[in-house]
């Protein structure tokens, strides 16, 4: 079980820097959380307001997509290095997922 230091060769030297970076990132997390709450509120309000569904559906889906991107890239750290393979497979899965759902909305007879 070889212990390898990935990016920073000597963690002691980088200690202060890392702490600062982590704290900064945490602030970003809180910001994105606020954004997620905001987006959720808009979604619920739109439904309450009773707009037409041809308008509401696409907006709701776009807001959901935005929220998922925030989760993936901030909360799940996909913006960090070393997530290439993870992203490749997640997006491949998302593609298969999209095709599956599209199929069931169009060619299941009714």
């Amino acid at each position: 079980m070889a212990t390898q230091q990935s990016t920073s060769a000597n963690p002691k030297v980088n200690y202060e820097y890392r702490r600062k970076k982590a704290a900064e990132e945490m602030r970003k997390h809180v910001t994105s959380f606020a954004l997620m709450i905001f987006v959720t509120l808009i979604a619920f309000i739109m439904v309450l307001a009773g707009f037409d569904k041809t308008f509401v559906y696409p907006v709701l889906l776009a807001l959901a997509a935005l929220q998922v991107v925030l989760q993936l890239y901030y909360f799940m750290h996909m913006s960090h290095k070393g997530h290439g393979a993870a992203a490749l497979f997640l997006y491949s899965g998302a593609l298969v997922a999209f095709i599956t759902i599209l199929t069931f909305l169009t060619i299941v007879w009714w």
């Binding site: 079980m1 070889a2 212990t3 390898q4 230091q5 990935s6 990016t7 920073s8 963690p11 002691k12 980088n14 200690y15 890392r18 070393g82 997530h83 393979a85 993870a86 497979f89 997640l90 491949s92 899965g93 998302a94 298969v96 997922a97 599956t100």
Partner: peptide, 30 residues
Amino acid sequence: RTWPESPEKTTLEGKNKFLGFWLFLGGETV
């Protein structure tokens, strides 16, 4: 101070689990 920057990916086991779990999430998506 000695704690590594990405403790979840520092050992080979950790790296394998990390990737394996992301792949699993890809499958869960489907």
